[in-house]
Amino acid sequence: MQGVWQSAVISAAFDVQAHEADDQIPAGPSVIVDPPDGKLPYLPEAAKQAKLNWDQRDRDPVGYCHPHGVPRQLVPPFPLEVVQDGDYFAILSETEHSVRVIPLNGRPHRKNYWAWMGDSRGHWERDTLVVDVSGLNGKTWLDQAGNFVDENEKVVERFTMTGPDRILYEATVSDPTVYSRPWTMRIPLARRPKNTELIEYDCVEGERDVVHHQNLQRQRAK
């Protein structure tokens, strides 16, 4: 799976659920495959919080340059690089320089570890990489629409190559204080051309809007 990849569902970065087009927001289908209705199974209180987040979308933690969390790391319409080296599977994101170096050697989860990107442990089931993620700090959102998780979030991710240029990425999220049941999202990742290089993406002090990120990609004369 080594190489540079990118989510093939641009609209999911804006909202993982089905949504209409809006100003600078492309319409898109839900990437939630379970429950079958494609809707996040919020508990009543959490549904209120999600609505509040929607009204305050400028509070998106990624807009403050924080790491994406999981599963959002795989969702933005920007490149990420997968590196496989011995006992490690690493995912390097261009945006926010979110990074996970995932041990595959059976190492147990860390205790009392609460991180933006969580604590990931992987293993292979035939040709599928299965990653168990805990230790998430609950400050992250799932998308720009304010869908969210809290510190009880746990994720099981599955990465499966369905062809030389596609990875099927599946994440099952459980968070019993936010959702009434676990739910699963599915996104194809598409391989970028061989020479694609990640460009540094950095934040500038005092700027708190995605639009103002110092995105060198945009400055790059092409």
């Binding site: 080594q2 790491p67 690089e81 590196v83 496989q84 080296d85 490690y88 690493a90 390097l92 320089h97 979110s98 990074v99 170096v101 990107m117 290089e197 990640l198």
Partner: peptide
Amino acid sequence: LQILENARAVYIVYERAHSYRILY
């Protein structure tokens, strides 16, 4: 810091500020 290698590059992931570099 952690160093990973493959045929394409040497990757250095730094603890500090979750920085990384790709040495092509």
